[in-house]
């Protein structure tokens, strides 16, 4: 009797739980069936009137039904919560293809990038990075580099003179003089920086450009050492082994002086427009430091020797990115600068 009542109650509760359309309906079912004054509570109140055997049996059935319905209710409740959350999240839909606001990291100038790359390379090789002023004395720019007044080599570099008698440095080589004074032998240094030549500007000429000077002074520095250093440098710059050659070049602050050519990387030396069909591209002037320069730097050339080289950073940037107009570099034009 009680059993069938219980069963039909449970059955109807199951159906109502299954049919509940909202969390509220479900809660109503729970209160009606499982609440303190609910149907099951009613039944359990009547247990006292039963025989002990029936009481135990019915009590057990009652518990089973209660557990079953509670679990059912809980599952349904979670389903509703899930659905509600899903609906809420669905409503939070965002179009992620919309552009993101706020600034992006800016771009460092391509000359800064290449300069830092080379500074890091040299620093890793134990080389000091030095700066020199952009306005130099005539002495540091010329005389101390073995280019006395009225030397025809002064023609090789059209110079901006200042009304105070100083000049805008025509090369970073003047930092050699400062470096020797500052560091003393033995030394290994580079000096990147801005240099000036009094030239009309056109797509391939600038009055303002960037160089990197390098110098090593030690005991018994030889051409073979210089070659090794240059090859290491160039392998890093170009990311591959390069074939180089030295040929005589005249720069008063080195003796012997060289032009270092690299085998054309475009045609591998076969000849192409880039290398003017020679198979070689002139890349950097270098040489063993002239004893006069060492002496003017306070270093005894009988005891010490060295090599020096100059690398055109502007030229390197133009080669690396295929830039055909040098004027872009100082234009401040973001349409150009943002490409790097």
């Amino acid at each position: 009797m009680v059993e069938s009542q219980l069963e039909s109650l449970a059955q109807s509760a199951r159906e109502r739980i299954g049919a509940a359309a909202t969390a509220e309906e479900l809660e109503a079912v729970r209160v009606e069936v499982l609440g303190r004054k609910g149907a099951l509570a009613e039944i359990s109140k009547g247990l006292g009137r039963l025989s002990p055997e029936d009481r135990a049996r019915i009590g057990k059935l009652l518990n089973l039904a209660k557990n079953e319905l509670e679990a059912l209710l809980e599952r349904r409740k979670q389903e509703f919560e899930e659905a509600a959350l899903r609906a809420k999240l669905e409503a939070e839909w965002v179009d992620l293809t919309l552009p993101a606001p706020g600034p992006r990291p800016g771009v460092l100038h391509p000359l800064t990038q290449i300069q830092e790359e080379l500074e890091d390379l040299f620093t890793s090789m134990g080389v000091v990075v030095l700066d020199g002023p952009e306005v130099e004395t005539e002495y540091n720019n010329f005389d101390a580099l073995n280019i006395p007044p009225d030397h025809p080599a002064r023609d090789m570099q059209d110079t901006f003179w200042l009304t105070d008698g100083n000049c805008l440095r025509t090369h970073t080589s003047c930092v050699q003089v400062r470096g020797m004074a500052k560091l003393g032998p033995p030394l290994r240094m580079i000096a990147p920086g801005r240099v000036f030549r009094n030239e009309e500007v056109d797509p391939s000429h600038e009055h303002t450009f960037y160089q990197l000077e390098g110098m090593m002074v030690d005991r018994n520095v030889s051409i073979a050492h210089m070659l090794y250093f240059m090859k290491t440098l160039l392998r890093h710059i170009f990311g591959r082994e390069v074939t180089v050659r030295l040929r005589p070049g005249y720069f008063p602050f080195v003796e012997p002086g060289f032009e270092l050519d690299v085998q054309c990387l475009i045609c591998d030396g076969q000849g192409c427009p880039v290398c003017k069909h020679s198979g070689w591209v002139e890349l950097l002037p270098c040489g063993l430091v002239h004893p006069n320069v060492l002496r003017m730097g306070g270093i005894d050339p009988e005891e010490w020797s060295g090599f020096a080289f100059g690398l055109g950073l502007t030229r390197l940037v133009m080669m690396r990115y295929g830039i055909d107009d040098i004027r872009y570099l100082q234009s401040g034009d973001l349409r150009f600068l943002r490409q790097f």
Binding site: P105, L108, Q330, G332
Partner: peptide, 13 residues
């Protein structure tokens, strides 16, 4: 400065 969204320029001296 670049990380704050500024592009670097070089101007003449």
């Amino acid at each position: 400065v670049a990380a704050q969204g500024f592009d670097e320029v070089y101007n003449y001296s």
